[in-house]
């Protein structure tokens, strides 16, 4: 708590002293002169009433002083100075889901989690791409959360049942699970860094769910797609439900995925069951949140409530006393 115009307080005190001195100096003996005042003042009834009257006056003076002090304090603008570190919520997230047969349950879990999250989003944008041998953009980056939630619900249902027109367009390429192509098309879903200077500060992440079992001949290898992601400042968070690596060699599918993910600044998670998805997404959210805190800001906010409240009470008390003193 500090005072913005602290110099008002000494000014107010000075004004009060001057006013009091003028008042005392300019007050002659008023009223009618009366002799033998002891006719009245010696009465015990008079002394009782006078004592009460004096107590009321003292109370009124105290309330007046309190009122003046409170209003002077309020005039000096008491302010609360706080240091805030606002969380910048301007992430862009693209869900990049491999919809090959082995992945559907994990995809459903991811869709379900993001469907929940989309309801709480504020400022974030979310998009979704599914791929198998070719990729399909279900919906581009959007902050229309109702629409996103609707799409995610539909996706979750389709992924759960594993059939329907939902997967149309994902088998147009040769082979299946062309992960490099899928990731590349997800990364392309973000607008260009240079084209939109304003978007440069938005964090970009891809939640990539795949088992990295490649069959076919992709246009982009996984490493090339990772390069592309890094050049566009996109972090890749890889979720692998089927990490069946033998040993720690880097050429194993899981190892490759891990290398790519970590190469973009993201993380690699090996999933044991779809139930672990919410926890992992939570973790991703948290790392994102902590890495996107803005610079500390000093916020000065006026807080006149306390002195003004006291002034209000004191003023009300003075009005009541004035009413009592002037029946």
């Amino acid at each position: 708590m500090e005072l913005t115009y602290w110099w008002i307080l000494p000014l107010a005190a000075l004004a009060l002293v001057i006013a009091a001195r003028l008042l005392i100096r300019r007050r002659p003996q008023t009223g009618r002169p009366v002799a033998h005042g002891e006719r009245l003042t010696d009465l015990p009834e008079y002394q009782n009433v006078l004592r009460r009257y004096k107590a009321t006056l003292v109370l009124a003076v105290a309330l007046g002083a309190l009122f003046l002090a409170a209003t002077a304090t309020a005039a000096a603008r008491p302010a609360q100075r706080t240091t805030e570190q606002p969380e910048i919520r301007n992430r862009d997230i693209i869900l990049c889901l491999d919809v090959s047969g082995s992945m559907t349950s994990t995809d459903a879990a991811i869709a379900k989690v993001f469907q929940e999250l989309a309801r709480q989003f504020d400022g974030e944008r979310i998009g979704m791409v599914i791929f198998d041998s070719s990729s399909v953009q279900l919906f581009p980056l959007t902050d229309d959360y109702d629409y996103a939630a609707e799409q995610l619900t539909a996706a979750q249902k389709a992924l759960d049942s594993g059939a329907g027109s939902f997967f149309d367009g994902t088998w147009n390429g040769g082979g299946s699970s062309l992960i490099g192509d899928g990731l590349a098309s997800c990364v392309q879903g973000f607008p260009d860094v240079d084209a939109e200077a304003g978007n440069a500060k938005r964090s970009r992440s891809v939640v990539l769910a795949t088992d990295n079992f490649l069959s076919g001949d992709p246009i982009f290898t996984l490493q090339q797609a990772g390069e592309l992601a890094r050049s566009k400042n996109v972090k890749v968070y890889a979720l692998n439900p089927g990490d069946f690596d033998y040993g720690d060699q880097a050429d194993q599918p899981g190892g490759q995925l891990k290398a790519v993910a970590e190469g973009t600044g993201g993380t690699y998670f090996a999933l044991d069951s779809p139930d672990a998805v919410p926890g992992i997404v939570q973790k991703v959210q948290e790392t994102e949140a902590s890495s996107y805190l803005a610079a500390p800001q000093v916020v000065v906010s006026d807080s006149p409530a306390l002195p003004l409240g006291i002034a209000l009470l004191a003023g009300a008390g003075m009005v009541i006393l004035a009413w009592r003193l002037n029946p």
């Binding site: 009618r32 002799a35 005042g37 002891e38 009257y53």
Partner: peptide, 15 residues
């Protein structure tokens, strides 16, 4: 209000 000329004491009208 009145005041006592003997001792200058003030006698408030309200009292």
């Amino acid at each position: 209000a009145s005041f006592d000329v003997g001792n200058g004491q003030r006698i408030p009208a309200l009292v």
